[in-house]
Design a protein around this nucleic acid. Structure first.
Lengths: 137, 137
DNA sequence: ACTTACGTTGACGTTAACGTAAACCAAGGG
DNA sequence: CCCTTGGTTTACGTTAACGTCAACGTAAGT
């Protein structure tokens, strides 16, 4: 059932964050859960938003960036200038993401190959030590 | 000539950072340039370290992490227990990097395909508006 | 001698993204 | 009735990674 609702602690344990974090995201305008009295009630859509936020964080986006992205998901269907602006924003964002993807892929591969080399140097140093026994001998 | 040396502003403009940033990295123990009087003189090796730090940043590593990684590049060639520990650190780090690579690739692809969908929804909404002329008509 | 460019060391300020603590309410169990 | 288990708001604290002065030294050019 994708239409159930969630308590704040439930979401917190699900995503391994604290309730403070979730309330903080609301404070920053990234979430707007319903209320039952004082208590926050999170919908499936809220859950998805949280997921978006956390994914954004893993990619190094700021909360502002994630907020921006979240707002791309519910366009104003009656306002064509707004829609056009939104489309451009989406395309720009995609461009940024793709460029980032390229850069990170290269960075990660570079780093891995350098770690390989560093390991190799260590292994060789160890081999050398094996051949000439210690100075104290 | 890879063995020339660099001034602090030279490195700063090269990498598009401020001199404050470079001194900050030194303060945190990631760099240790020579001195000529008071003035810092950076070697080619220092330049490489800076590059490592900045790449680390792009990957979301902390300065502490980068410091750790930099220290992997000049092993103590006479101490085999140290060398063994270092090799294990390198392997662990590579494991982390690879896992991060996997995760980021998935995150980026997910995000791109979701942006594609969002764009599509916008375009459809625009089409709808074109068909039924504005309410004021 | 004066300015300009580049360098230095403090030291305090700033921003993002929460952590932490205090003080409180509400529902249910024993 | 009290306690435990959630939930709430408000507010101050914290950390990383610098930014931003201030106050000064030095060497080169005019």
């Amino acid at each position: 059932m994708p239409n159930r609702s969630y308590s704040i602690t439930e979401l917190a344990t699900d995503f391994d964050i604290t309730t403070r974090t979730i309330r903080f995201y609301e404070e920053k305008g990234l979430l707007n859960p319903q209320r039952k009295g004082q208590t926050r009630i999170y919908s499936a859509a809220d859950r998805v938003k949280l997921k978006l936020i956390l994914r954004g964080k893993r990619l190094g986006l700021s909360l502002e960036d994630s907020k921006d992205i979240i707002e791309m998901y519910h366009p104003d269907h009656d306002n064509s200038p707004q829609l056009i602006k939104l489309i451009n924003k989406i395309r720009e964002r995609r461009r940024l993401i793709k460029e980032q993807l390229r850069q990170q892929l290269q960075d990660l591969n570079d780093m891995i190959s350098e770690l390989d080399q560093a390991e190799e140097r260590c292994v060789e140093a160890l081999d050398d030590i094996q051949k000439k026994p210690s100075k104290t001998a």
